[in-house]
Design a protein around this nucleic acid. Structure first.
Lengths: 354, 354
DNA sequence: CTGTTAGCGCGTTCAT
DNA sequence: ATGAACGCGCTAACAG
């Protein structure tokens, strides 16, 4: 009575078309809603003939299941939320690709949100995602504060950290690498080359994910080697190319410049290389440079950048896989995983092996 | 009676917690569901005292609105679908950032899907997105085929193309740039430098978005200048760095090599530069190179890459803005928009002005 | 300004 | 193997 009446609506682009429901299909096929629901959801308890008939009228009527209604009834949305600092960073883009591939494989969709590492925005996004009844949440980058823990604890769905970790909440699952050790390794490459004045182009030290741990690794390596860290050796940037350029200019034009530089990410490392070259230094003859991440850029500059190869795609993929296990109540053996990284020694360092 | 009973559930991470509804809040606050709904949705028709009371019990009970239920009742999900070729391409990552920023500004979330330019996957993703009742759809890259048009036509929601266009369906809104003209301009830079043997490192010619139109622009410029296009001048890659390297190696080691090369995207252009350098050619003295897109990489290599600066972020932002207009039934003046690009002439060409 | 009452479209018992 | 009926949590008239 209602379906019959609404056929006179004006049609603009994608507006006001009759919306055909499971009920319409049922009536048309001469079965009940339940039966239609069964065939749509692949329930085997349907006689083949009936199934065929229903499938046929579904096709004929152009019926499209309403996932929102299904979500309300079943309490599952097959959608997961992803909160990420900034998709325009190659690092996160690659990681997100890993997430999406696995999500897709398990028939989930992802709602992607950029947080710009702003705590308030992060919290607000997480809240919005939970309101949308995502079946799970992936949280990347940024510090996990007490407020995060609070909202995480109140969530009805599993939440996995990717590319970061929470050392306070010992239960919170995560997938990342050992940042400190990796940074230490990178520094040790430089030490092993024989340098004793090794500069650091770091990130913000109040960043508990990149800036601080990678600084920590540098510091530990230096101390263990009995090397000095004077303030002429350390500059902090914002992880972008330009800040790497600036940092290197300062470091290299000091009275007693470093002969090797560890930049805590590749973008800055490439900035360092270019700044050094502009100052007439040869890489790696005059200055050795090592980066961190192994984004595509590392292989698209000359000299090829030596760096710490972080399995970005895998971090995303493994984190998403872990999340699916939680969502499907699969048994999970390890929920705090540190993935392997490796040193990718190319042409910006003299050492090619470690 | 039910809410009271379910308090004995075991609690694992994010599982089986009591879900508190608008009804619970209403009962607790001594008002009706409608009133709670009103304050949640900011409806002004609520006495301040009442509003305060409701807000208070919402806070106290930790009530979180269920967007799925809201979506079913209101027929709006405040979610838009985004189908993109590959988020790990800098070009699309930047574009997506533009989309998300504007979406966020208008309180929409985005469901992101990678299609890898595979038609079947595209269609299937679009279908899934429509089932999820997105309020609108942004489709990027890839060819718009008859099957696309069919499913677009059957959609109940507005669909806007970004970074691409459909020349068959004259009604389909889009936001992009004039690819042919831009490629023509890039080629003309090289022509104006005085080259008569200008190589092209192109994309797949069956790609109607990048490969073909940019080839077309090259061809038109050459023809208008009365220059020859022999097959020793053209190589096709897959838009990635490595294929640029390979293409340039072939072009430059031929008997009569080009003295300038137009690569249809920056990744390949940088590959061209490096291949040329490895062959002992100086850029731009021996070979001029111009790229296309102006991804960050263009400013992170030496020599700095001359390129066509495509407003990637803006394409995304404007497309999303256009989509919001459709979704909110705002009046829209122009629904097929070509954004401005500009030539960014840096150090890989000799010409610095055009 | 507030409450009542229908649905929104579908999954899911529980019968049959 | 199939159908009837209820409920998921909320918005949207409509009354008052």
């Amino acid at each position: 009575m209602k379906n019959e009446l609404r056929k006179l609506g004006v049609e603009k682009m994608g507006k006001k078309k009759e919306t055909i429901t499971i009920y319409d299909v049922a009536r048309e096929a001469g079965v009940s809603m339940a039966t239609v629901s069964r065939v749509v959801n692949g329930n085997p308890n349907v006689k083949p003939v009936t199934r065929k008939k229903v499938l046929e009228t579904i096709r004929r009527m152009g019926y499209r299941p309403n996932a929102v209604a299904r979500g309300l009834a079943s309490k599952k949305t097959t959608t997961v939320g992803v909160v990420i600092p900034d998709i325009s960073y190659a690092f996160f883009a690659e990681l997100t690709r890993g997430i999406e591939d696995i999500a897709n494989m398990y028939h989930y969709n992802i709602i992607l949100c950029n947080s710009d590492l702003k705590k308030d925005k992060e919290l607000q996004l997480i809240e919005a995602l939970l309101e949308k009844q995502v079946d799970g949440l992936l949280f990347l980058g940024g510090e996990v504060t007490e407020e995060h823990r609070e909202i995480f604890a109140g969530a009805q769905v599993p939440i996995v950290l990717a590319g970061t970790r929470d050392d306070v909440d010992e239960e919170r699952p995560f997938v990342t690498i050992d940042q400190v050790q990796a940074a230490k390794d990178a520094t040790q490459v430089l030490i092993k080359e024989g340098h004793d004045r090794i500069g650091l182009v770091g990130g913000p030290l109040d960043d508990p994910i990149i800036g601080y741990p990678r600084y920590q690794g540098y510091k530990e390596a230096m101390e263990e080697a009995g090397l000095n860290i004077d303030e002429n050796l350390v500059r902090l940037g914002n992880l972008r190319y330009d800040s790497g350029v600036k940092a290197a200019e300062e470091l290299l034009s000091s009275n007693h410049p470093p002969t090797a530089i560890f930049a805590v990410n590749d973008e800055m490392a490439v900035g360092v290389i270019h700044a050094a070259q502009d100052l007439g230094r040869k890489i790696p003859e005059d200055v050795s440079v090592i980066g961190f991440d192994n984004i595509p850029l590392a292989a698209q500059v000359r000299p090829l950048l030596s760096t710490v190869a972080v399995p970005m795609y895998d971090i995303g993929a493994v984190a998403m896989r872990l999340l699916t296990k939680y969502m499907n109540d699969e048994s999970i053996e390890d929920n705090r995983v540190l993935l392997q990284y490796r040193l990718e020694l190319a042409d910006s360092t003299r050492l090619k092996e470690f």
